Amino acid sequence: MERSEGGASPGARNLITDVPGLGVGQAEDARVRTGVTVILPQDRAVCAVDVRGGAPGTRETDALAPENLVEAVDAVVLSGGSVYGLASADGVVAWLGARGRGYGLVAGIPPSPVVPAAILFDMANGGDKAWGEAPPYRALGAAAVARAGADFQLGTAGAGYGAMAGSLKGGLGSASIVAADGFTVGAIVAVNSWGSVVAPGGRTFWAAPYEIGEEFGGLGAAGLRGPADHWGLAKGQASTRNTTIACVATDVALTPAQAKRLAVMAQDGLSRAIRPIHAPFDGDVVFALSTARQPCPEAKDLTLARLGALAADTLARAVARAAYEARPWPGSDVPCWRDLT
């Protein structure tokens, strides 16, 4: 993978797991057309969240406020399934607790794993949702965390399995960047947006200016145009149930307040890659993690500004990679980016 003009380049995998100390696990249910993605730090990690969408579905996000007790988390969950998908974190909590991981207060009492989560709406994609009193999400969460490792699938996978990016097949995307002075930033995203990931009248990704090499087709930015009040391949007016959920991460040690600023700045990556975004009926959420594998340089504010800018660019790239790698569900003819001409 080539370097950018600033001397930075993607990590070896061009995935969020290029950030030292992180693994990712995924599980899907093809019959239901849904899935779960778990971001698993090797050690408890500082975490923050920024919520911009008008219709979010989340768990444990209040605990992440810098003024609150818990300063680190044990995992982050991204899930399909709307409100039912929040149960995926139950499976992750049970798996972690059985292995002695979590926040401990009193000796002899089981630890309490801290697992924030966010969900997207993939309920109207034609999958079998007649699960009665046994939704699949707790089991999917447990299966996903058990599979956590350095490599994972993009596109129609994990939390992005049932997703749509505007009127195109959405999916799971990831990317990374290693700065010239050695720190790493990564992003992972499940793209189920109301807005379009491509400019009107063609197949050029909104994120094209941020592409490195040919990681999502190498088409360049020549086809970019954004007419006012014209959004191309966005969903129709009646499609008001959407969400893009993401996590960015760095190996630089951050405080909870600094991680919050990282999440805030990273949200700009969604704005660069999806149009429109953060609508009243979107549930857009971005988590930020610090694995603290290296100290923050003395110029902390400047470093944080650089981390935030890199996180936004990397998240924009991850969004485009999600749609670029997406494939139809088995037996379906759902339109994909690769079908565009």
Rank of each mutant, 00 (worst) to 15 (best):
M1V: 13
S9C: 14
A12N: 11
V19M: 00
L22V: 06
V24P: 07
A27Y: 00
V32D: 11
G35R: 08
G35A: 00
L40A: 15
A45Y: 05
V46G: 05
V51M: 06
G54T: 13
E60Y: 07
D62V: 01
D62P: 09
A63P: 02
N68M: 13
N68H: 14
N68S: 10
V70W: 08
A75H: 04
G81S: 03
A89F: 02
D90F: 07
V93S: 01
G100H: 03
G102A: 01
G104T: 15
G104M: 11
S112H: 10
S112G: 04
D122C: 08
A124T: 14
A124Q: 13
N125W: 02
G126H: 12
A130V: 03
A130H: 11
A134H: 15
P136L: 06
Y137I: 05
L140I: 00
A148S: 11
D151L: 07
F152P: 02
Q153H: 10
M164E: 00
L168H: 03
G170K: 12
A179I: 05
A180G: 14
I188P: 07
I188H: 02
S193G: 11
P200D: 08
G201F: 02
R203Y: 00
T204V: 14
F205D: 03
W206E: 09
A207F: 07
A207V: 09
P209Y: 11
G213I: 11
G213Q: 09
L219E: 11
G226K: 14
A228H: 13
G232P: 13
G236V: 04
R241I: 09
T243N: 15
V248E: 09
L254G: 06
P256V: 02
L262I: 06
Q267M: 12
D268F: 08
R272L: 13
A273V: 05
I274F: 04
R275A: 10
P276W: 00
H278G: 04
D282P: 12
D284T: 12
D284Y: 10
C296F: 03
D301N: 13
L302A: 15
L304W: 09
R306I: 09
R306C: 14
A309Q: 11
V319L: 09
V319G: 07
C336Y: 10
T341Q: 14
